[in-house]
Amino acid sequence: MLHPPELEHLHRPDPDARPTVELRNVTAGYNRSKVLQDVDLKIMPGDFVGLLGPSGSGKTTLLRVVLGAVDVQQGEVRVNEKPIRGRNNRAGYVPQLETIDWNFPVTVEETVMMGRTMANPWLPWYRKHEKELAYDMMQRLGIADLAKRHIRQLSGGQQQRVFLARALASSPDLLLLDEPTSGVDLKTRDDVMHLLHDLNHAGVTIVMTTHEINAVAVHLPRIVCLNGTIVADGPPHRVITPHILREVYGAEMPVIQYHGMTLVAESAHFWIDRNGGEPLATVPDDSHREPVMSHAHPTSGNVPEHHHHHSDPE
């Protein structure tokens, strides 16, 4: 259990705070297609937001809108209450580990320093205080002693830390992470989520995308459900309901509340009671886990690629 719901009150927004990023009625996409429509979203200082939705729901596009890297066709994006034109220089971005070229000849230190590139773009070296900042960041994330290593010579969790350190080295107002838990093993996923919670408690504003409901989304203080537009926005126990999940994923997903913890049966073939798919009140024992024929639930045939990990609630 990464983030007990009891801690939720710590994240209650300060009424005087000004949004770090605000999207007003934004429609955005590539060329003429519209990936996102009519999106209204406020990200407040200290927020930890998970963007949840199936593939093609606009999670990555929304991140890019916040980065200022997608054409906004309608509406307005405001950063620190000012409309932005072009790029949002106040955001630090952490890419998916799967997109990194691990054969590229760079060390941990060189990679982290990349975050400082645009601080003095025409200076061929880094200033002393920049090196110290990067070193502090590496120390904070526990990778300072790996500084001279090649990026391939690291564990998954360490690799994720390198790219977090790079993003933090640019002193951003908020951190944006694209699927930080995708393609990593279970232990790394836990490491990364703990680390992000620690950073958030230290005051870093975080927005991340995820498609993992049980392993990631339900542990975040705030979830934004996407399906081309924002379907729901709030804490997990409000947002993770069968009704909302049906709208987001187009599939029946029973939700189980267990000792204040939210659990979703991500594949409709499992855990559904034979009498009509009402959510079970408790975690069923093994005898209930037998696959149930889907004839009772016509929509269950549409479950979009979520056959993995209906795993332990940790």
């Binding site: 980065l67 890297a69 790029r87 220089n89 955001a91 971005y93 890419p95 997109t99 990194i100 070229d101 590229f104 760079v106 060189e110 990679t111 320093m113 990349m114 975050g115 400082r116 590139t117 645009m118 773009p121 025409w122 200076l123 061929p124 880094y126 640019s170």
Partner: peptide, 23 residues
Amino acid sequence: FFFAYKMFLFNTFDSDVARFYGI
């Protein structure tokens, strides 16, 4: 390359992300 070294390194390593960092 001397003056734009940092930008070329980032752009060579990961052009997509370099764009997000303002390069």
